[in-house]
Structures are given as structure tokens and as C-alpha cells.
Amino acid sequence: MRNTSLLAFSGLVGAGLLLAIAGSPGAKAENDPVYEVQAGRVDQHTFNGYRRYGESCLRCHGPDGAGSSYAPNLTESLKHLSYDDVVNVITNGRQNVTKSQNNVMPAFGTTEDVILYMDDIYGYLKARSDDKLPRGRPKRIGDDS
């Protein structure tokens, strides 16, 4: 899987099939999913990313991607990892199990709740990592709650 980027398309809800497309490593930044933050409010995709993060990632990476006692602070990680790196680790997982370390990042390659919304999750974490989004539940653009 090393040199393969698995790009999962968000928006294919219910397609049931995981579309895996081989691409070149280190995709260009302009192809990366984007997020939108306007006066502290986010677009629906980024909001969905926040929510999916809460469902599948929070129990290890802590509230708001800020890290826990054993899983990395993703707002830091995303300053260093490319979009492809992130997709790769989420899809395939990563184990760092030694005598003293028992770190397991699960593989989400077959988890629809994650794969189908990969770009939303990435966008949300990227916004957090870029310091464009504070901690807590983001408000949606055009939403007053």
C-alpha cells in the first residue's frame, strides 16, 4: 500500500462499494479537500467531519483532535502530514506495538462511516490544524444554534 493513495469519494453515500484508485504519492495541494470557515462558522462538510470524528476517532484522539494520553494530537500531525499520508493511515491503520508501546491506529478501510466521509474528516481536522477553527462544536454557516 506504500505508494498507493486510496481516494474515497465523499458524497457516494450508500454506494456501498469502496472505490480505490491508484494514484501517485504526494498529491498536489490544490487537489486536497477544502474547508470553509466564515466568521467562525463552517460549511456542512466540515461540520459533518466534526461529527464523524466524534463518532470514530474521539475515543482515542481526544476531543477536538487535540490528542490523548496515548494517541497523537492530530492538529499537530496535520501540520506535517500530506493529505495522502492521512488518507493512507486512516484507510490502512498503523500499529506500533513493542514491549513498552501498545499503539494501534485501527484500519478504517471498510468502515463506511469513515471512508465515505474521509474528505469531510480531513477538512475538519485541517481547519483545526490551521488554527482556523477553535475547540468545541463548530457552528454551521446560516445556522443560529
Binding site: 481526544g62 476531543p63 477536538d64 487535540a66 490523548s68 494520553s69 496515548y70 475547540r135 468545541g136
Partner: peptide, 21 residues
């Protein structure tokens, strides 16, 4: 040996922006 739910919830501090920090 810190960890458990406490290690998840509090490692990075608790955050809430709803009250404007």
C-alpha cells in the same frame, strides 16, 4: 500511570468555545 477516559478527555485540557472561551 495516567490514562483511561481521563487520559482521553483531559490530556489536552477540556475545551469549549460556546462561551467565547
Amino acid at each position: 500511570g495516567v490514562g483511561g477516559w481521563a487520559g482521553i478527555g483531559m490530556a489536552a485540557g477540556l475545551g469549549n468555545d460556546t462561551d467565547g472561551l
